[in-house]
Structures are given as C-alpha cells and as structure tokens.
Design a protein around this nucleic acid. Sequence first.
DNA 1: CGTTGTTTTGAGATATGTCAACAGGGGTGG
DNA 2: CCACCCCTGTTGACATATCTCAAAACAACG
Lengths: 194, 194
Amino acid sequence: MLLREGETPAEVATLVSGWAFRFKLLPDGRRQILSFLLPGDLIVFHSLHEEKLNFSVRTLTPVQVCAFDAAEFRSFLFDRPSMRRDMQVYCAAELTAATETITDLGRRLAPERLARFILVLEARLSRRRLAEQGVLPFPLRQEHLADTLGLTPVHVSRMLTQFRADGIVSVARNQLVIRNRNQLMNLAGMAMRS
Amino acid sequence: MLLREGETPAEVATLVSGWAFRFKLLPDGRRQILSFLLPGDLIVFHSLHEEKLNFSVRTLTPVQVCAFDAAEFRSFLFDRPSMRRDMQVYCAAELTAATETITDLGRRLAPERLARFILVLEARLSRRRLAEQGVLPFPLRQEHLADTLGLTPVHVSRMLTQFRADGIVSVARNQLVIRNRNQLMNLAGMAMRS
DNA sequence: CGTTGTTTTGAGATATGTCAACAGGGGTGG
DNA sequence: CCACCCCTGTTGACATATCTCAAAACAACG
C-alpha cells in the first residue's frame, strides 16, 4: 500500500518501474479502481493541488519510485514554463481518460468494457515500449479487472473464457496476447475506418 | 447545441447564466452526460489543452456566455501566476469530481447514484447562491438524469416516484425540494459522523 | 505434497432494461 | 377559449445482464 485516501503526502513520486493503481474504497468494502499507474507516471498527480488525497494507491507488482519533496516540486513546476505546459497537457490527458472511463461505465456493456480496457492498456504500454505486437505484460488478477470495469470477478472470468474461446485473446499468468485485433476492436466499438 | 466533439473551437467561454452539459454520444445513439455546467463555469475547460474537443456541449436552458479568444486566453493564463494557480485548482477539482463519478457508476446502485447526484448538485448550486434550504432550480428532464447516472429514463422515473413516496424529495416543474435530508444522505451513503 | 489464493462452472436471484400503452401538461392554432 | 398534439412522465408485464453463493478445479509456493 503506497498511499491512503485522506492523507496529505509530503512527497510526490514518479513510478520508475512496476505497476500500481489508484482506487477508492467504499465504507462497505466495495472498491473502484480508477486507473493503473505505469512506469513514468506521476503517482499523486491527480491530487497535486488538493488538500488531501481523494483516493488510495497500491502497488500491483514490486515497484521502484523516485520521490520529490511535494512543496518543492510544486514550486518547481510553477516556475518553469515548459514544465507548466507539460503539466497542463498531462492534466488534460487525465481528464480525457476519465471522460472515457465514465462513458464506459455508464453506457457500455461488460464485453465492450473489457475489450476497450485491453486495447487502451495495450496502447499505453506500447507507447512506453513495454508491449510489442499485441503481447503485453499483465499482472492483474481478475479481481482487479472486475474492480476496474465495475463488474464482478466471476463475470469477468466468464467473459475472459468467452474471449479465449472466440480466439480473441489468450491470457496466461502475467501475460496477455491479443490474437484477433479486428474482432477485439469490433467488440470495443472502435470500428476501423480504414 | 454549443459545441460538437471533434471540433477545435477558436473561442473559450464562460457560462454567465443558464445551464449546459457536457456529454459523449456513442455511434449507436447511447449518450453519457459527463457533467453539468453552471453559471461561472468555464465551458471548454476540460479540453483547454487538447487538440480537439473530446465531448460535446449542449444547453439545457437559455444561456448567456462570455467568450474569449482561445489562444489569447491560454497565454493570459500562462503568464499570470494567480490565474495559473486557479487553473490548477480548478483542474484538480474536476479530476476529483470525475473520480467520484467513476466510483458512482462503477460501484453504486441506482438509488445511491440518484441520491448523491441530488446532493452534489445542491452543494454546487448553494455555493453559487442558487439554492437555499434544499430548494433547487431543476431544469433537467428525467432523460438527462438517466444519461447522467447510466440508467434508463423509466428506471429513473420509478426511483423518483419512490423517493417522493418516501417523502425524501419532491420535484415539480423546474424545481426540486429536499424534504428529508437525513434520509437522502443515508441513501447516498454519506453518513453524518457527528 | 499440503496449503492457500485464484479461476472456473453451475444454479438461481436481482437490478435494471425493454416495450408498449396510457396519462398529464402546456403550447399552438383555429 | 377550446381542441388537439406533442413531449414527458408513469405504469405494468416481461426480458436480460449481471450478481450471488457455493462448490470444484487449478496454480503457485513453500
């Protein structure tokens, strides 16, 4: 466990290696995973300018982080125009991602959500050269998928076995392979317009 | 209709009076409302630093807007430290709101979602002195509620009549009154500690 | 090899969706 | 001022996606 909702961390950190995820816990134990953090991501970016963290963060694999003093980091950002620009872009990107997630959870069915999740994860990993040719590292348990997609672990299991049966993906321990990208994109409602 | 997804608006605007909402439309017609814009809100804040808008915006009531040249506005922001700070705070707030919405859609049942929606709407309106004592202007049709909460209009209707029957709220044309705040907060899972 | 944590499978339950008919309200035109 | 109409909301019967519970099969791991 890296950070707990409600804290005011004195440090800001960057994920150097490994995976983590941001999530919220409801009083009755339900959990919603907000996003996964990959190498290169700023860990508390989302609450950089809030009093208190409004989510928790937890590691998924062993990680290496690189920490900065929070106040120092903020003023550093504040003073450097190029950094400032970067942060704004980063912020816009996060808002865009959140927007997509909201649409997924509010208006898409389970198989659609799963398909999109896989595709956007692959895209993020590819950009970092962590995935090639539809082969991605995949440290998530089905419970993580469930808590990300707003589903139940058993329903995730059923959909994954369905996906496998249809030859769309294969997922072994810690590795996911996209076997039929067309079909996956169809399911995701991402038609290829040439 | 104010703005369409995919556009690159040359102007940035502030909502002076009236209500609008941001939403995404899926190819098959499903719609997800992302947020409502109230007087004082920046209309394209969420895509201020993106190439293209990744959502559409539409008015809910007649509105007055105050427009600025986008490029000018950006450099204005960029140069003024106090403005910059404001934007960062605004951005953090939006991210926090998005986080809540994701949790609502992913992990809460319909009545919970509805209760919370009403309460956070009231809070936003109160801060602007647009609501007093649990009486709020309410220009939404049930279809808007449905598209916000990831539900169906008929299910929203059922829940609202239930809420009314339980004496929790009453909603007439364009006005919603919170009649039993305790019960509403319970439903919302916002227990009052102390 | 046991043990513990994860995934799979099945049967049955439930929240929410669909379809369709009806009711009310408020505008519009005659 | 009335009659009509369209839009929105309501209600009922039924359909379905997803959940729950529980057991069994697997996998990882000491």
